[in-house]
Simulated scan of single mutants.
Amino acid sequence: MGVVVRDLVPAFLEFWAKAVQEPERQLELWDEYVAASPDVLNDAERNGITVDPQQVLAGYGGREDLIRANAPRATEWITSAFDLVAPALAAADVELHAVAMVGLGTSNGWVSVVDGSYTLFLAVEQIADLDGARILAAHELAHALQLPLPERPWPEDGTLGETVYAEGFATALTLELLPQYGLAEHLWFGTGYENWLAEAERALPEATAGILAELESAEHDVLRRYLQFIKDGDLPTRIGYLVGTRAVQRLRETYTWPELARWSTTRATDELRAVLDQKSDQGATRDG
């Protein structure tokens, strides 16, 4: 079937033109804009964040040129990503929904359940260049297809094991489909992260053992330790993405992408556990 994209960027540009002309009415105009395009707040709502409109508005001025440059490209980024990813997962007959928009300056892309369907969101104000956009759109498209493809769709908020598998799946897949970009670029959707990758590779045995011990946890602090930008302890931020990528690459030696995309949460967690257990044993042997 394909992907159906709702483009909310023109609505933002219309709102912003009025907001610049009438600064004294910015908050009133913001309320009208959000009421007409409630998906603008999806990222905040899914993360339980309280939005400060004044703080959000203050950030738009410095991003206006980037928003205008990306505005005509967003829909094509998403449709091209579908054409790239869906055949690899034997999912070209799936109908997928997506939203191109100007977000709150927090996330560049994500997948969320809207009206019962997994929906891809792409926030153009956070996308700095065309290469990053291509990787990001394919990564999020992989999530949007993988999460609902199994016989029992995956939950929106999963355990550490489920999330590490899903992020590893999306990253390993885009790395295979877009080999002209390096691993660090696929993990960060941009350049300049080679030092982070080197540090993460050194910390991989410790992170693998830690994730293995807490695979079934759904605690926010546990997921944050391995998957978010916030520094928590001595491990590099987001190292769980690298752990998941390496694990899925190992699984890819045996299974096809359509198979890996359709595993239940139980199967995926069990397979991930087996791979991480092997890696943990290998690390312990080297250390000894």
Rank of each mutant, 00 (worst) to 15 (best):
A11D: 15
W16G: 06
K18E: 14
V20H: 10
Q21K: 15
R25G: 13
D31S: 13
E32H: 09
Y33F: 12
Y33V: 08
N42Y: 00
V51M: 09
D52L: 11
V56F: 05
L57D: 08
L57Q: 08
G61I: 01
G61D: 07
E64K: 07
A69C: 07
P72F: 05
E76P: 08
W77L: 02
T79A: 10
A81I: 05
F82D: 08
D83C: 05
A88H: 01
A90T: 03
A91I: 06
V94D: 13
L96Q: 12
N108S: 11
W110L: 03
W110A: 00
G116D: 06
G116K: 06
Y118C: 01
T119M: 00
F121M: 02
F121C: 01
L122V: 02
D129K: 06
D129A: 05
R134M: 10
L136D: 08
E140G: 10
P148M: 13
P155V: 02
G158W: 00
T163R: 02
T163H: 00
V164Q: 12
T171I: 03
T174Y: 01
L175E: 11
E176P: 01
E176H: 09
P179A: 14
L183K: 14
L183I: 09
L187H: 09
W188R: 10
W188P: 10
F189C: 08
E194P: 10
W196S: 14
W196M: 12
E199M: 11
T208P: 03
A209G: 14
A209P: 13
A213W: 05
L215A: 08
S217D: 08
E219W: 03
R225W: 04
Y226D: 06
L227V: 12
D232G: 04
G233A: 14
G240H: 03
Y241F: 09
T245W: 07
Q249C: 13
R250N: 12
R252D: 01
E253S: 15
T256C: 00
A261F: 00
R262P: 08
T265F: 06
A268W: 03
T269V: 03
L272M: 09
L276F: 13
L276I: 15
D277S: 15
S280L: 06
